[in-house]
Design a protein around this nucleic acid. Sequence first.
DNA 1: AATTTTGTTCAAAATTTCTTGAACATTCTG
DNA 2: CAGAATGTTCAAGAAATTTTGAACAAAATT
Lengths: 193, 193
Amino acid sequence: METTVKPKKLARTSARATGGSLSSNGSGGARTVASRPTLNAFQLQAVSFFVHAFAALSLPRSIGEIYGLLFSTEEPLSLDDIIARLRISKGSASEGLRWLRSLGAVNPVYLPGVRKEHFTAETSLRKLATGYLRDRINPHLENGPERLHHLQDSIVEGAPESSFQKSRSNQVAGWYKFMGKVLPVVKALAGKF
Amino acid sequence: METTVKPKKLARTSARATGGSLSSNGSGGARTVASRPTLNAFQLQAVSFFVHAFAALSLPRSIGEIYGLLFSTEEPLSLDDIIARLRISKGSASEGLRWLRSLGAVNPVYLPGVRKEHFTAETSLRKLATGYLRDRINPHLENGPERLHHLQDSIVEGAPESSFQKSRSNQVAGWYKFMGKVLPVVKALAGKF
DNA sequence: AATTTTGTTCAAAATTTCTTGAACATTCTG
DNA sequence: CAGAATGTTCAAGAAATTTTGAACAAAATT
């Protein structure tokens, strides 16, 4: 009957196989510009790995797939390469690439004489962490001071509960201070990897 | 035309007002055990605050609401108190409370002579962070070594791309080391708030 | 033991998020 | 410039998650 607590994502149904229809190719990857729509064993593992890892951050599978493919491929790949290899739609690939690019998780590569834009994966943890914090965490922290003020302004001076409420407000203020302390440390540590 | 990048959640439609139908009550909160279904200004702000904050972690709004209510209420509240005040279903309240409890974000309070289980919010950042890391992050890190091995095992020794693939594997190994370094530091810093 | 109180579970409904695919915009090539 | 190549956008469909509500289980009271 499973009486144990199961704090995962409150999920109940959940299920979306990592598989799909990614064909594997004995060995070959891309050559100069790549175009053959198969993944080698390493690429398959990498895609699976990053789909899982990105899911931990509640990011869509397509983004994990794209990053995993680029991470595991030495040659720069174009939008069409990605579409052909991962069998995802143009729309997903385009939006996914944009997201990764804005984060700094993917680098454009200029290939002389080649029209299509090509990309490789950024693997510097410092850059990845910085980009993620900048795009996904900071936006939530920025209006922090304002939100804290809202909280403080809603306290009725003199009311019996005001003392309790003030201590809670201070608690929140402390959390913001914590974020201010911990984020730089994380970035500094990330720089070493 | 907004040509600027907008890496948020890839959301396009999105919209679910924070408001809802939480009635505000001039001043009064709960008395001893609470049961009047209104929120004071401070509680309203707190609920809004935590719904927003939890959303940053992709957690459902009901969980943010419950934690926000408990955080902003001095008296312990029961399941029915929460339902009445937040106007959410029994199911949501029950599952949300279970999730918060298993994380350690909510503490059961024993009130002599009272049947219903009552709860207060845990506000120690150390406990909150520890619980979150334990329940949401560690599970993803635990099978890390195994996943890393899969990656390494898929490398074909001697193949021209094996050198590249090995360097990528090492990259991943480094990331796991980073997590091993940074998590303890975060916990240690959290202890001070 | 029957009844009431309290809390959990889960199928169905509501909502949100993601993917697709085709239309559109833009840039390059001949 | 016309046509082709490349890439973006977004409405509609598909899929996943969250919420609801009622049935069920467990514990306490009479």
